[in-house]
Amino acid sequence: MSTAQPSTRGAWVAALMGPAFASLAAWFIWGPALTRLPVGKPAVVPDAALSTAARRTTVGDPPTILINNFRRTCTDCHRIFDVAARPEGDRLQHAHVKLEHGINDRCQNCHNYRNMNELVLYDGGAVTYSEAPRLCQKCHGLIFEDWERGIHGRVSGAWTSELGPVQRLRCIECHDPHQPRHPAMDPLQPLPGPATLRMGTPPAGGAHAPELREGDPLRRALLHPQLSGNNRTERAQHEKP
């Protein structure tokens, strides 16, 4: 390195340093923000979705219905319409009732045809509407047992009765007795991605391609039941002749 140059070069460096620092300062103050804060739109959650109230309102005991502004119980009509006489008759007033309760597909399995204000047990004994769980118990004994012990069904209030009232819902406060399966629900919105929205772009075909481990016998059986079924029938056909 020649020593003839340094002082001129040095002068240049020294002269440029001040302005360079100044422009750096300007950049810090007026320069663009280099990072966009990747914050997503917050989910919209209707307050009703978070209600802890029972999902169903139950009928009274005995159930009543307003007809021409008169409150009627079941027997008010069924005194006349004797269902016991025609148990398989058309459901005139109750056509809207859609019974989807497994193999339990007869009204009289639960309703007391001799006193329509009540429900009926196997032995013909009556159960009032307010005791509905006893009716359900006749088929769902294990679940009833769980419910009695507090491990089936929705509970709210205190986690121990020593510290406050424990509210336990009865069967029909969640389940529609005619369609006891929970109706499908609209799930609340998922997160927009990781909290800071920095998820990579998902590859075509989605990130969770289930076919990736098709070698898994369990998965194969679950995903393509017809495969294993076909194999069996084919084999059966081979064996026949």
Binding site: A33, L34, T196
Partner: peptide
Amino acid sequence: FVLTAIALLGLNAYCRQLVHGLVMTGMTD
């Protein structure tokens, strides 16, 4: 000078991070 300038750039970036939080980074939960 170059090192100082880069260090100052880093300092400035860090001050921004201090104000806005680690959301300024690519890190996530």
